[in-house]
Amino acid sequence: MAPRFILRRLLLILPTLFGVSIIVFVLLRVIPGDPIVMMIPPGATQADIDNLRQLYGLDKSILDQYLIWFGAVLDGDFGISISLRQDVVGLIVSRLPATLELALSAMVLAVVLGITMAIIGTYWQNRWPEAVIDGISGFNQAIPDFLWGLIFILMLGVLWPILPISGRIDPRTGMEFTTQFYLAESLLRGEFSILADLVRHMLLPMVALALPLTAVITRTLKASLFETMTQDYIMLSEIKGFSRWRILIVEALRNALIPTVALSGVQFNFLVGGTVLIERIFSYPGIGNMAIGAVIDRDLPLIQGLIITFAIIFIFTNLLIDLSYRLLNPRVANE
């Protein structure tokens, strides 16, 4: 079952990325904005400009540029960042783990919170807990992640400063990491004070990212649970004498999750996309933050590398969603 399916999906990645790369490459070169102009010192001569343009290959036709770029990419070389003068692959590899840790934590938080709230709302249907949950998730749904970010900075960073609002780690901790996966590494090495510092830094951006997804999961899952709780097999479980909690968790939840995954799956992609602004707002050193800098500087090689990276993350996010759908649903799992 699953391995075949995963293999098929992995094979699809290559043509997808190929298409993405062409579109990005062409778009970046037809929209206004000249990377060379952004980097020249004042008073540079036309000859200097032409030299630079030649250095980065920007004097050639778009097709030629693409072929050169693509040839290098096949060798794992995404070029040199124009603004940072460093290897694009090296830059991305050093920043990607920060984003992955942030996005994954936010997803897990949203799933746990969303499922919990939906269950509580269903268990106490038509009583005050349901009303509270409906209120929270209705409110929550109206506020986008970056606005949460700004609200948090204002409330918890400025008015009542209890949490750090920028960066990923307190530089004074002085821990030497061997990987860029700080969260995972400190956890595995049992450095719990470092872990706590990392979590404190990550908390606000993570919650800001998680809340919109939480709202969607809560609402879809709760509606789906309501629907499920009216099914014949649930009624029969009541007759058999199972407790309402057990019926909800053991009998109804998995059934209700199937349509929920299908309906809220796309929201996971929004969360990944949301890292760009959120990382910027919280000066969090991930690839989203880097992407905004790259766009401001018209750093074509870096933008290209980053977009391909985001495309890969999107593809894996969707693969994960499809996989969980299949795991939940025995009908497709066995095919």
Binding site: Y233, N255, P330
Partner: peptide
């Protein structure tokens, strides 16, 4: 029950 098609839990 009347309807066996809907009276067993489909995911268990």
């Amino acid at each position: 029950p009347q309807d066996p098609m809907t009276s067993l839990n489909p995911v268990r």
